[in-house]
Amino acid sequence: MPIKLPSDLPAFDVLTNEGVMVMSEDAASRQDIRPLRIGLLNLMPKKIQTENQFARLIGATPLQIELSLIRMSEHQTRNTAAEHMEAFYRPFSEVLASGEKFDGLIITGAPIEQMPFKQVTYWEELKQVFDWTQTNVLSTFGVCWGGMAMLYHFHGVEKHILDAKAFGCIRHRNDEPASPYLRGFSDDMVIPVSRWTELKRDEISAAGLPILIDSDQTGPCLVEDPDHRALYIFNHLEYDSGTLKEEYDRDVAAGKPINVPANYYPDDDPSQPPQNRWRSHAHLLYCNWINEIYQTTPFKMSDIGMKTKDRRSSGA
C-alpha cells in the first residue's frame, strides 16, 4: 500500500520517480480503509530533504500511511521557503487545539545538540509536545537530538559533549534480537553517525530502559521506552547515500576542522563516490515500527491514549 501525500509536495515526485508507491489525497479518499496517521515534527533546517528521507522509509510498508507535517509554532526556519512551510506545515499549537490524534509521531533531530536543552528557544513548547504524545500518540520515534531531548525530559538522562565529532559509518551490534523492532536484523550492522554528543550506557540502564542497538565505538544507538511508548535512535539510518558527504563538504568549504567520515568512502578516499551499506536496515527498522503500530493501534482514533479498560467501556 502507498503513502498518502499532497500531490504538490516535492516528496510526491521524488518518491514516485524512485518507484515508491505514492497516492494522492483524492485517490486515498476512495479507499474504504483507515490509513495510519503518522506525524513528522520536523526540526531540521533542510525541511524538504528530511521530508523525503522519512517519507521514503514509512512509504515502503504494505500499509496506507497519511503523513502530516508539523513545525514548532513560533520558530521560523531560514533554510526552507516560506511558501513551502505555509502550504504543507501546521504549527503544533494548531494541532494541539484541534485535539486530533496520531498513530505515530517522528520527532527529528536538530543542529543544536551542543546547546543545553533549557536554552533552546522552543524548549517549553517541545516539552508540551512530549507530554501531549502520552495522550494523543500511540507510538513516538525520537531521532538523534529529538530522542536525546525526550530521554532528558522523561528520565533526566543528560547528553554529554564529545571531544571530537562522531562521524562516519560505524559498526553496531544487535543486543536484543528478540525485539519486534529488530525483526530481520543482522547480528551487526553499519549505521551513519553524525553528532557532537553521546549518551552514557550506564545512565540509560539506570533509568531502566533497554538498549536495543549498541556500539563499542560510539555507544548506545537505539533505546526503547515502553512506559512512554517511544523509541529513541541517536544515529541516522534515514540518511541518503550522500548526506554525510554533504556535511563533510560543507565543513571543508567553511574551513572547519572535520575528519573524513569513517568507513564511508571506498578506502576512505573522498574523491570516490560513497557507498550506502545501511539502506536495508533503515527500511527494516521503520517497517517494523509501522507494523507494531498497526498491530496495536485501535481502529477508532479517539481511543488512542486511553487505558485498556477505558477503551473496552467505549466499545473499542
Rank of each mutant, 00 (worst) to 15 (best):
residue 242 G to Q: 03
residue 120 V to C: 04
residue 220 P to R: 11
residue 23 M to S: 06
residue 123 W to E: 12
residue 286 Y to L: 14
residue 50 T to E: 03
residue 274 P to D: 01
residue 276 N to Q: 12
residue 107 I to A: 00
residue 258 I to W: 07
residue 62 P to I: 02
residue 298 P to H: 09
residue 215 S to T: 06
residue 136 N to Y: 15
residue 81 A to M: 11
residue 69 L to Q: 02
residue 6 P to S: 04
residue 261 P to V: 07
residue 265 Y to F: 15
residue 124 E to M: 03
residue 98 S to D: 00
residue 53 Q to S: 13
residue 34 R to H: 07
residue 293 I to C: 03
residue 22 V to N: 01
residue 41 L to T: 05
residue 26 D to R: 06
residue 312 R to F: 15
residue 66 E to P: 05
residue 205 S to L: 13
residue 207 A to C: 08
residue 121 T to Q: 09
residue 261 P to K: 04
residue 125 E to C: 04
residue 166 A to P: 00
residue 201 R to H: 15
residue 76 Q to A: 09
residue 106 I to N: 03
residue 216 D to L: 11
residue 120 V to F: 12
residue 199 L to G: 09
residue 291 N to Y: 14
residue 272 Q to M: 08
residue 152 Y to S: 15
residue 216 D to R: 10
residue 249 D to A: 11
residue 279 R to T: 05
residue 14 V to T: 09
residue 160 H to Q: 12
residue 245 K to A: 13
residue 2 P to K: 00
residue 117 F to C: 02
residue 293 I to D: 07
residue 306 M to R: 11
residue 71 R to T: 08
residue 73 S to W: 07
residue 238 E to V: 01
residue 78 R to D: 09
residue 211 I to E: 04
residue 235 N to R: 02
residue 287 C to Y: 14
residue 34 R to Y: 14
residue 261 P to S: 08
residue 161 I to N: 01
residue 170 I to Q: 08
residue 155 H to T: 06
residue 280 S to T: 10
residue 293 I to K: 00
residue 124 E to T: 08
residue 251 D to T: 07
residue 64 Q to T: 10
residue 169 C to R: 05
residue 203 E to A: 15
residue 274 P to V: 11
residue 54 F to E: 05
residue 222 L to M: 14
residue 47 K to Q: 03
residue 307 K to G: 05
residue 256 K to S: 04
residue 86 E to R: 15
residue 153 H to S: 09
residue 25 E to Y: 07
residue 279 R to Q: 12
residue 108 T to I: 05
residue 37 R to N: 14
residue 85 M to E: 12
residue 139 S to L: 13
residue 20 V to Q: 04
residue 218 T to L: 15
residue 150 M to H: 02
residue 77 T to P: 09
residue 206 A to H: 13
residue 223 V to G: 00
residue 77 T to I: 01
residue 286 Y to H: 09
residue 83 E to K: 03
residue 81 A to S: 13
residue 220 P to F: 08
residue 71 R to Y: 03
residue 239 Y to W: 12
residue 153 H to M: 05
residue 128 Q to N: 07
residue 304 I to C: 10
residue 64 Q to N: 05
residue 55 A to E: 11
residue 77 T to G: 01
residue 197 T to P: 12
residue 131 D to F: 05
residue 106 I to T: 02
residue 129 V to L: 10
residue 200 K to C: 07
residue 12 F to Y: 10
residue 10 P to E: 00
residue 150 M to T: 00
residue 71 R to P: 01
residue 203 E to T: 14
residue 64 Q to K: 02
residue 298 P to S: 08
residue 250 R to L: 10
residue 126 L to I: 05
